[in-house]
Design a protein around this nucleic acid. Structure first.
Lengths: 150, 150
DNA sequence: GCTAGCTTGATTACATGTCAACTAAACCCT
DNA sequence: AGGGTTTAGTTGACATGTAATCAAGCTAGC
């Protein structure tokens, strides 16, 4: 790795730490963690504020186990609840409670403001475009991908 | 937040997850975690492979508590050891052991290769420059910074 | 209809982090 | 010296994440 590349990598590491510390701190001030917020916001986007655990986990890129645990904690705080799936005795739905929706609605503007302050406003439109492009490149499947060849 | 900004933010979140999952997995295959590797590599860069805990924590951007705990775990695995600081009875030095150095030397090429594969090689030189620039912008202190005004 | 095997969540054991309280040593000011 | 204040590092209580395993429900082929 040459010096430019080394610097870029270190810069990348610093970026993630700095930005996420900033937004996480702001969310914590409202009583939500970053993952809490992700669950609330993605759940709120679905019809009936509901989704099966598995589907939700897939959509969020989380393991079922992780979401199950997190949902339990959030349910204990009254942010969402589980209901049985009538079509599948094994399954369950996660449903946003009124309290969860309220929490999200309270948090959303502050979180948006936080993202803006720690991220958006510090960058130029060109930077933002560059980030999207970088994400696209990083997500392209590679020949040397480390999954078993299909 | 307008749609472009929203997309950029989501892209940013995806980038961090994807890249770090990749490199962490590769390191885990050698028996080190990402934090293990950071400790080993930053410690190896210092004279005598040694640093006080606090200095090291500051250099890494970690809390003392975090480094103290992590050092205990790594010491239990023989990767480093603590020695008392002769100049300051409160302090201690973290010292890389021969085994820790070996572990690092074994891991380094694989990790570099991993960073290359998951990050560097997927991006253009312009992307890498952009990342450095973005890091610089994000690190600029802001008027609206959330620390107490000096 | 029955059974083998897959799927879906829940649970357990463990790794890792945070925060705040604590201990001890060093500092500093009189 | 003596006493309050800082600083270094550790630790307990707890939050959160992963991986392995478990139990129950579903489904396809017989």
């Amino acid at each position: 790795m040459n010096p430019d590349q080394e610097r870029a990598w270190r810069a990348f590491l610093r970026i993630t730490v700095a930005v996420q510390a900033g937004t996480a701190r702001d969310l914590a001030a409202i009583g939500l963690s970053e993952p809490d917020y992700e669950v609330l916001s993605t759940l709120s986007e679905r019809p009936g504020h509901t989704s099966t655990l598995g589907e939700q986990a897939d959509k969020m890129g989380w393991s079922r186990s992780r979401l199950s645990r997190h949902a339990t904690r959030m349910a204990a705080r009254g942010l969402l609840k589980r209901t049985p799936d009538p079509n599948d005795g094994r399954g369950c739905f996660l449903v946003l409670t009124a309290q969860g929706l309220t929490a999200l609605e309270d948090a959303a503007p502050a979180h948006v403001e936080s993202v803006r302050r720690h991220f958006i406003d510090r960058l130029t439109p060109a930077d933002l475009t560059a980030i999207e492009q970088i994400a696209r490149r990083l997500e392209e499947p590679q020949a040397s991908e480390d999954r078993p060849a299909t």
